[in-house]
Nucleic acid binder design. Structure first.
Length: 661
RNA sequence: GCUGCUGUAGCUCAGAGGUAGAGCACUCCCUUGGUAAGGGAGAGGUCGAGAGUUCAAUUCUCUCCAGCAGCACCA
């Protein structure tokens, strides 16, 4: 029997017979470790205690104290336990797959009857029974034929399909939780009793396509969350509650930022408060872009289909466009007669993107290589017929405005423009309170146009640009557009949700289709590259992110209502107006509250409304020309001279790019 | 778009086969109150839209619309 050497994390090496299991190793190290062990990491692979180790390896034994591994195991075991529970309650249910995800797991089932929320309780109860039984977990490796036959006989077509999709040389591993069996890569715990029965919860039921393919069967997915202890579960549920409180749809209503209604699904009715945030952000971006070498333009909203046919969008994205048909023969007096005259009907589309229009601006007049790089920016209002199920508050809408720009440049300029953009974006994100962000680099997809050399060059330029900014990125191989690679910029909000905002895409295709050219140094016509880029993405989404990130308590300069001056007695009313006037003159968004209400009431109402500063004035303040300053979230107040407060607040109200250093 | 759920006053929600209720918000009155809800009165609803069953539908059934969760999508 061959001998192998296993090296522990402390560097200690031990000799064993090949084929020893991780569990046996743990027991050999110490009796107590043998009891506490749940799994092992063997050469960076998460190993089941029951799996044999065949060669020399680094090994680390895990116990429940190793959060990462413990979570993975217990969540995966819970997936199996849940599937078993479901099949025990409803034997006619077919099982499919059940992976571990962030904070928990899901399992997809095929069952004629829909699961109801009440069913979740029943399933949970059954799961707890299974956990209490402490059923042993057992694993075996099976031959393909045996496995296929097994699942065919049991009428589990999804499992059969799964096996057929697994490459032939991979071993098929089976796991049993008690008598219940599932095809599974593992690893797992040793018995069902190791799963903490009080630290999991079934969360929701939803539809999900088999194999993620919308053309295939829709299954029923049950989501669960699980942790190593019940305090952690409670903390997680608590976090979800907090997240719900800062939902921009809820805050949007509470802060009177915007509303949406049935007649215009996916489009925003901005109220004064929300529009203040929006325009403040837009003014800021306009200044940043001007300083960043962009020229701002504006292009039409409704464009004849001919242009979309030329650009290629009519072919591929027609179903995502709002089509506007206009009878050109209409004269306003004989609508009925004219409407029948189809020959004069003109078909337009609301622009779903700005790029083709920007090329039209570029194409006016001859361009020289001296004009490049030419950076054309537009706060472009776009309309897209997004699928109904995709809409989400103001984060995913049908009508939105991008902080869009297209940079026309030569191939050699791509790298510098890319680096320049990353710096541009990084500064803006930092000023808006997001010092860190993630870059995803999407490279050439399977289906693509262009030569390999060109892809090599452009991908290399982007990579080099990122490198020069000293930033890191994650590679998304094959995720690029069919015409070129792209960078996407992601922000993480205060509760860990990730949002795609910025983007940078290299496009040699559209200039080709729309025949954009420039005259080179050699006097000949050349084809420019087009770089699509957006910093915030869309104002709608970004306002939503800001609201959620700050739980409505926006930075002072972005807060729609910055200061409320509240009278304590009506004798102070005149002074209140004076204070408001002085603050307004200083550039602060101030308003008066001289309603016949107690100061307690006013403080509460404006605090709930997330007004960052409340200035209360009564007889004393009138006398001394002071104000009592109360900051949102703080209990104590301080009485300060009005003149001083006006200066302080005026400074805070200044956007970050205009502040003196 | 798909699966499931939901739609009652501005908001949060209760309700029942016989044309509706609470709290907050709103209006008016009293109260001039010192930092998170003072008191009283009043007004406010084709119960998402349409069709069907019924003597009778907001309630039951169907269709549509919108929203929510997830999936798919996000050029």
């Amino acid at each position: 029997m061959a001998r192998i050497t296993l090296t522990l994390p402390d560097g200690n090496a031990r000799q064993y017979d090949a084929g020893i299991t991780a569990g046996e190793v743990a027991a050999d190290i110490s009796k107590s470790l043998g009891k506490k062990a749940i799994s092992a990491t063997v050469n960076n692979m998460h190993y089941d205690l029951a799996w044999p180790i065949d060669g020399d390896a680094d090994i680390a034994i895990h116990t429940m104290a190793d959060e990462e591994q413990a979570n993975e195991l217990l969540r995966h075991d819970l997936a199996h336990i849940m599937a078993r529970a479901v099949q025990e309650i409803w034997p006619d249910t077919r099982v499919t797959i059940g992976p571990v995800i962030k904070d928990g797991w899901y399992y997809d089932f095929d069952r004629a009857e829909p699961f109801t929320p009440e069913d979740l309780g029943e399933i949970e109860k059954k799961m707890k029974e299974i956990i209490n039984k402490r059923d042993p977990v057992r694993t075996e490796v099976w031959d393909r034929d045996v496995a296929l036959k097994y699942y065919e006989d049991r009428g589990e077509p999804y499992k059969v399909e799964l096996i057929e999709s697994i490459p032939g040389d991979e071993p098929l591993r089976m796991y049993w939780h008690g008598d219940w069996q599932d095809l599974c890569r593992g690893p797992h715990l040793q018995h069902t009793g190791q799963v903490p029965g009080d630290a999991f919860k079934l969360m929701s039921i939803a539809g999900a396509y088999w194999r993620g393919d919308s053309k295939r069967q829709m299954l029923q997915r049950i989501y669960g969350v699980a942790f190593t202890g019940k305090e952690k579960l409670r903390a997680h549920l608590n976090m979800l509650e907090e997240a719900a409180k800062r939902d921009h749809r809820k805050l949007g209503r509470e802060m009177d930022l915007f509303h949406m209604q049935e007649e215009a699904p996916g489009q925003v009715f901005w109220h004064p408060n929300g529009w203040t945030i929006y325009t403040t952000l837009q003014d800021y971006m306009r200044r940043k872009q001007r300083a960043g070498g962009y020229r701002e333009i504006n292009t039409p909203q409704i464009v004849d289909r001919k242009l979309w046919e030329l650009s290629g969008h009519w072919d591929k994205y027609q179903h995502h466009m709002f089509i506007v048909e206009v009878d050109e023969s209409r004269d306003g007096e004989h609508d009925d007669a004219a409407a029948t005259n189809k020959a004069e009907t003109r078909i337009n589309a609301l622009k779903p993107m700005n790029c083709p229009c920007h090329v039209q601006v570029y194409n006016q007049g001859l361009k020289s290589y001296r004009d490049l790089p030419l950076r054309l920016a537009e706060f472009g209002s776009c309309t897209r017929y997004e699928p109904s199920g995709a809409l989400h508050g103001i984060m995913r809408v049908r009508g939105f405005t991008q902080d869009d720009a297209h940079i026309f440049c030569t191939e050699e300029q791509i790298e510098a423009e890319c680096a320049r953009f990353i710096e541009f974006l990084a500064e803006i994100y930092a000023e808006l309170g997001f010092p860190t962000f993630e870059i995803k680099f999407a490279t050439r997809p399977e289906k693509r146009v262009g030569t390999e050399e060109s892809w090599d060059y452009v991908e290399n330029a982007l990579e080099e640009a990122i490198r020069k900014t000293g930033r890191t990125y994650t590679l998304e191989p094959g995720d690029g557009a069919f015409y070129g690679p792209k960078l996407d910029f992601y922000l993480t909000d205060a509760i860990g949700r990730v949002w795609q905002c910025g983007t940078f895409q290299v496009d040699p295709n559209l200039p080709e289709r729309l025949d954009a050219t420039y005259i080179g140094e050699d006097g000949a016509k050349h084809r420019p590259f087009m770089l699509h880029r957006a910093t915030l993405g869309s104002f709608e989404r970004f306002v939503g992110i800001l609201v959620e990130e700050h739980a409505g308590k926006l930075p002072f300069w972005l807060a729609p209502r910055q200061v409320v001056v509240a009278s304590i007695t009506s004798e102070a009313d005149d002074y209140v107006q004076e204070v408001v006037a002085e603050l307004l003159a200083a550039g602060v968004r101030a308003e008066a509250d001289v309603r016949n209400e107690k100061i307690n009431y006013k403080v509460r109402e404006h605090s709930v409304g997330k007004v960052p500063v409340i200035l209360a004035v009564g007889a004393r303040e009138v006398e001394d020309r002071t104000v009592s300053v109360r900051r949102l979230g703080e209990k104590q107040t301080s009485v300060q001279p009005l003149a001083e407060v006006a200066v302080t607040l005026a400074t805070e109200a200044t956007p970050p790019d205009l502040r003196a250093l």
